[in-house]
Simulated assay, not measured.
Amino acid sequence: MTALVFLGTALAEIAGCFAFWAWLRLGRSMWWVVPGLLSLCLFASLLTLPAVAQAGRAYAAYGGVYIASAVVWLWLAEGTKPDRWDVLGACVCLAGAAIIYLGPRVASGS
């Protein structure tokens, strides 16, 4: 379930940020900012759902999913096929995210 939440979170963040990119870099109407802001609010809300005790650990694990999702966005939304370095980098990031999220934790008093 966490993987689906992270994927939805990444889609919301990338779409929200792309709305600003479209406005500021592609010359689209300022009205692109409105759905962009709503998407970024959805992103922030979704990022609170994974069952992780510390926010920083959730953010770090999510980061790998975000990077891989951005590479997919590059391909599907922007029409640029990722090269082997994009794919390798995304795989390394996903491996790091899995280590952070799934690694065994020792209970601590703090």
Rank of each mutant, 00 (worst) to 15 (best):
W23H: 07
R84P: 07
V5F: 04
V71Q: 04
L46H: 00
L38C: 09
L74Y: 13
G64Y: 12
V106M: 12
R105E: 15
A3M: 06
F18G: 00
F20Q: 01
T80F: 13
W73G: 12
L38K: 00
I99D: 15
A61Y: 00
A68F: 13
A61T: 01
S45M: 11
Y59P: 00
V65R: 01
L11H: 11
S39A: 09
L42F: 14
I99R: 07
M30S: 14
C17R: 03
L37E: 01
V52F: 04
P104A: 13
G79N: 04
S108A: 12
M30P: 10
W21F: 11
T80A: 13
R84Y: 15
L42H: 02
M1P: 04
L94F: 13
V71Y: 04
G103R: 11
G56W: 13
Y59G: 00
F43Q: 04
A55W: 14
D83M: 13
V87Y: 06
V65C: 05
L49I: 10
E78N: 10
L37Y: 01
T48M: 05
A19R: 00
A3G: 09
R84T: 08
L47W: 03
F6I: 13
V5H: 01
L42Q: 01
V52A: 09
A15K: 01
E78D: 11
F43M: 14
L26M: 09
A60G: 12
Y59N: 08
A70L: 14
T48Q: 09
R57D: 04
C93G: 10
M1L: 10
L46K: 01
G63N: 11
A60I: 02
S110G: 12
S45I: 15
A44F: 11
A90V: 07
G8I: 07
A90E: 10
L42S: 08
V5M: 09
A90S: 15
G36K: 09
K81T: 06
A58C: 13
A95H: 12
C93K: 00
R25Y: 06
S45V: 10
G103L: 15
W85S: 06
R57K: 14
T80R: 08
L26R: 08
V72G: 03
V5D: 08
L88H: 04
S39N: 03
R57T: 07
G109C: 15
W31E: 05
E78S: 08
A61E: 02
C41A: 13
L7N: 02
Y59E: 06
G63F: 12
K81A: 11
T48I: 02
T48W: 02
S29V: 02
A19W: 02
L26P: 04
W23E: 15
V87F: 07
L24V: 03
L42D: 02
A61I: 02
L49E: 08
C17H: 05
G27V: 03
W75S: 08
S45E: 13
L40V: 14
S45L: 15
K81C: 13
P35G: 05
E78T: 06
M30F: 15
V34T: 05
R84K: 11
R105K: 12
C41M: 14
G103M: 11
A68I: 10
A51N: 07
P82Q: 09
Y59K: 06
L38H: 00
L102Y: 13
L11I: 10
A51K: 09
C91I: 09
D83Y: 08
P82K: 05
G89R: 01
A68P: 06
W73N: 09
C93A: 11
Y62E: 05
